[in-house]
Amino acid sequence: SPTCSGMEIELLAQDVLRSHRETSQPRAEELQQRRWDTFSREEVCAYQRKPMQEMWERCAGRLTEAIQHVVEFAKRLRGFMELCQNDQIVLLKAGAMEVVLVRMCRAFNPDNRTVLFEGKYAGTELFRSLGCHELVGSIFDFAQSLCALRLSESEVAFLCAIVLINANRPWLQEQAKVARLRGRLEVAFRLLLRRTHREGLLARLPPAGRLRALCSQHVEQLQAFRRLHPGALPAAFPPLYRELFA
């Protein structure tokens, strides 16, 4: 289209990959090297003995760090900072956790169902004292299903960009502008998939509702935790976590 030249699409694609590379830690090669470095039986037991509140604080801390990287990813994405500030906030508030969940598949080992957490790979049992087995299981299932797609780093980068730039989020002020950016991202993603003979991927992606459900489940579990531990949240949870979820 006249508003979307081939050059523009090319630049956008390079930009998505660079933004992803610069803001995703650890790097893919390092994750690959460490994927069998799992917690010992004793270390798992030590995590399981931690009080519920401490485990929630730790998980909120790690999640917040991941979200800060997602904010940096968004800021480097061509077009994001040209949106009005209301819409930047709306997109991040609604999408940051979803992007973290997509990014999590990079740090997930589907062969033993473990995820990198505080330096080593951990199975669901390590998170027992959180008291939300169902949520943890669903998050692991989601990571497992993304890993089955054998996504390349470029594909993860585009998925994250497309999850974030969603013109259907409520309270957007310049919906058309977001939709145009989203459209350009989709064109660039399709071009990448055609070049790499991966067109079939689009039909195999998990439905958007699945990510949304995981995020609502997280907020529900947080509310249940707050009922059990009133007053715990202001004390030790990161302010950004409270701002996004409480």
């Binding site: 800060q68 904010v71 800021k75 500030q85 930047q88 906030i89 302010p239 701002e243």
Partner: peptide
């Protein structure tokens, strides 16, 4: 509202 997100977005290199 969203004070921290605002701050992170405004910082050149947060």
């Amino acid at each position: 509202k969203h004070r921290i997100l605002h701050k992170l977005l405004q910082n050149g290199n947060s």
